[in-house]
């Protein structure tokens, strides 16, 4: 799907639609909040690694809260 500019000065991300096969019975969780992502992942490269969020709000929370916490 199409990419979009990331919030908070991020490098930008892209929406990825999930199309699980019938034997894939498990939905995946957001890298920030842990919520289920049932249909669309917001995928962003942060500090050289790919992060998958439930949406842009969680990317923002990840940058403003989780990263500073990890740095402590």
């Amino acid at each position: 799907m199409s990419g979009a500019a990331g919030p908070d000065g991020g490098a930008g991300g892209r929406w990825v639609e999930l199309k699980p096969a019938v034997w894939e019975t498990v939905v995946r969780a957001c890298d920030c909040c842990g919520q289920v992502v049932p249909k669309r992942l917001w995928v962003v490269d942060i500090a050289g690694s790919e992060r998958r969020f439930c949406g842009t709000e969680c990317e923002s929370l990840y940058r403003s809260y989780v990263l500073p916490r990890l740095a402590r």
Partner: peptide
Amino acid sequence: RPIRIIAPP
């Protein structure tokens, strides 16, 4: 809405 939750998977 004003309550954000982080529950590590």
